[in-house]
């Protein structure tokens, strides 16, 4: 049986992992902590990468890693229940087993961003793939300029990782702002689209790296707002989502123009996908 350490050497064979714990984040979203069943390790990944999670007897889905890259004893994934596999995984308990292939794909440019301002814009569950990058930057805070985290959600009760957002916002070296699309009278925070937050956040457009993750419509308007603030396409990175199957660029299911999202993405520098981004049939 393959071991966790051998996972990338055997990319098509799931490695057994045990569920350490399961946390309900939102009514339809949960976080799974996984550790290799054979105790093998340490587990390394780059912020932005994903794993293929196999719910035995049901199926396999690609899920971004949402945990701290410095925590090498476990893999953390935050999952929204949208289909048979993700709903089924939501019923797992500590001690249950899942199969894991990975980690796969490209990473957020946390090294390139050193010495620069970093603007993170995310919406909905798009905060999950960016959380490892935030952990990494906060763990190496002196190496970065201004850190701006902008988050949009459907409503106040749909805000993911709310306590962490509040904790990050309480730091003197991090600017955090959040908004929701809809709210009623008791909410005293922002209401409006996430792009509205960009003009209120201070960053140096000529020396900033932006990392964006969320629904494609949200990313489209975010890119436009960032460009309006002076960022060019080479400083903007997006995480794309397509229907991934093999995760290693063999099957072609996630083809996106001349690239495969599983192998060449999911994180793309925007200038490399700009001609086909939000173009019909791509």
């Amino acid at each position: 049986m393959p071991t966790a350490a051998a996972a990338t050497l055997e990319p098509m064979t799931p490695v057994p992992f045990r569920v350490l714990g399961m946390r309900k984040e939102l009514p339809d979203t949960y976080t799974l902590d996984l550790a290799p069943a054979d105790g093998d390790g340490p587990l390394h990944f780059a912020p932005g990468q994903f794993n293929m999670l196999y719910h035995f007897g049901v199926g396999e889905i690609p899920i971004s890693i949402s945990g701290d890259p410095a925590a090498t004893d476990r893999l953390t994934h935050t999952i929204r229940s949208v289909g048979a596999v993700s709903r089924g995984m939501g019923t797992l308990k500590a001690g249950d087993m899942v199969g894991v292939r990975g980690p796969f794909g490209s990473a957020w440019p946390v090294d390139e961003a050193r010495g620069r301002d970093v603007v993170i814009v995310c919406g909905g569950i798009g905060l999950a793939p960016l959380r490892p990058a935030i952990y990494h930057i906060l763990a190496n805070r002196p190496s970065y300029g201004r850190l701006v985290i902008l988050y949009g959600a459907r409503s106040p009760r749909d805000i993911l990782f709310r306590r962490e957002l509040e904790r990050w916002g309480g730091r003197l070296d991090t600017y955090v702002d959040a908004t929701v699309d809809r709210a009623t009278g008791e909410w005293s925070g922002n209401v409006g689209v996430v792009t509205n937050l960009i003009r209120h956040s201070g960053f140096d457009p000529v020396d900033t790296i932006a990392m964006v993750c969320g629904p494609e419509t949200m990313m489209q308007y975010t890119v436009e707002a960032l460009r309006d603030r002076g960022l060019d396409n080479t400083r903007i990175y997006l995480s794309m989502e397509r229907n991934m199957k093999c995760a290693v660029g063999f099957c072609g299911r996630c083809q996106f123009g001349g690239a495969f999202v599983c192998r060449d993405g999911p994180v793309f520098r925007f200038d490399r996908i700009a001609p086909i981004f939000r173009v019909w049939e791509f």
């Binding site: 949208v82 909905g124 959600a153 459907r154 809809r182 409006g192 689209v193 969320g214 308007y221």
Partner: peptide, 15 residues
Amino acid sequence: AASRLQIVDMYGHPD
């Protein structure tokens, strides 16, 4: 434009 995007409910559940 912002109001239209809010109506779209981008973060809504696919179901």
